[in-house]
Design a protein around this nucleic acid. Structure first.
Length: 348
DNA sequence: GTAGGGTTAG
């Protein structure tokens, strides 16, 4: 990946990490993460009550106990709350560690304040807490989410330069960023790079790039990756099928759409509301109201209830009707159509 | 012991 200039604010934080990198590089490769067992709370109030109890205790529970309490709140997306709890912990004399500070970095990033997240990195250095791959990955993700992809790449390069070993999650974050900015070329190359470096891209990673290719009008390349995925023994999921079907449908390749739908059925992959809506949209656009209605019936039989987006597709019929009946007012056509539908109830 | 990512958007 081409290197980009790191802006000065990033340098100031990241350069401070230099003296810590040697120690880290010797440790990072041997660290393995254990499977997560999540603690859960019925509601936020329970967590807060426990937090108050812990804060008031003497001696204070360990930082590990506090992070166990903060993590479920992060999963509940209570980011602002977690930030204020971290502040309260500090004021009560609880010493942070890399886990709790990473939680804080993540909360700032999720709140769209990656700048505060970077400040926490500075704070870590002051406190003598060594950042790790999670700290950097979280910040890189924050930058990607804030559409600051160049800065995300700079930080990625910096972390590698300093001897931090990016892992599968770090690579996936960058891959998402490349797809988000629509850089199809680099996204495909990055997928290859991941493979070369021993991080075998999974179905989601392939899905990210396939979607990126579809959105940028590169259906053939997308289909190539799709074949590659299958050849490697992976089972494409519904998201990938929907991306491809949507792209094919937009190009009017209905024969190809049918081929993929059959393939899904052969592989026992159930169509979802997205798939059905794409199919209905195509029928409506070509004025095939009977097939469109029949598709609604089929999806309902499958237990999938059409929603407002699905029904809205029927209004595309107006464009088709408009082009056929130039003398007819659109309003009249809508009235007739709705009356007819309410009388006949074609969905049942 | 505790922390970070994940593709469709019809």
């Amino acid at each position: 990946m081409a290197k980009l200039h790191s802006p000065s604010f990033l340098h100031s934080f990241v350069n401070g990490v230099r003296h810590l990198s040697t120690l880290h590089s010797s440790l990072s490769s041997s660290v393995k993460r254990t499977p997560k067992k999540h603690i859960s709370f019925d509601n936020v109030d329970d967590a807060l009550a426990l937090f108050d109890k812990m804060i008031g205790k003497y001696p204070k529970p360990s930082i590990v106990e506090f992070t166990k309490l903060l993590a479920p709140l992060v999963r509940m997306k209570r980011y602002s709350l977690v930030v204020s709890m971290c502040t309260q912990m500090e004021l009560s004399g609880v010493s942070h560690n890399v886990y709790s500070l990473n939680i804080l970095v993540n909360c700032f990033c999720q709140l769209g304040r990656v700048d505060f997240g970077l400040s926490v990195l500075g704070k870590m250095l002051k406190l003598g807490v060594e950042p790790d791959v999670v700290t950097f990955s979280t910040l890189i993700n924050g930058l990607v989410k804030a559409s600051k992809f160049s800065l995300a790449v700079s930080l990625f390069d910096e972390m590698v330069e300093k001897g931090y070993q990016p892992d599968l999650i770090t690579y996936s974050i960058i891959l998402n960023g490349l797809s988000k900015i629509g850089d199809t070329d680099r996204a495909v190359r990055f997928l290859r790079l991941m493979e070369e470096r021993g991080f075998k891209p999974n179905v989601v990673a392939y899905g990210t790039v396939i979607d990126c290719l579809c959105k940028n009008g590169l259906l053939e390349e997308a289909l190539h990756l799709f074949s590659e995925l299958k050849v490697k023994g992976n089972r494409p999921n519904i998201v990938i099928y929907n991306c491809l079907i949507h792209a094919m449908s937009n190009l009017g390749q209905q024969k190809e759409v049918r081929r993929l739908l059959n393939e899904m059925m052969d592989s026992n992959i159930s169509l979802d509301i997205f798939t059905y809506t794409i199919v209905i949209d195509a029928y409506c656009k070509e004025g095939n109201i009977l097939e469109a209605i029949d598709t609604v019936r089929t999806m309902r039989k499958q237990g999938i209830e059409p929603d407002v987006v699905t029904y809205n597709k029927f209004f595309c019929l107006l464009c088709w009707i408009d082009s056929c009946c130039l003398n007819c007012s659109k309003f009249m056509v809508v009235c007739c159509l709705l009356t007819l539908m309410s009388v006949v109830n074609p969905w049942n």
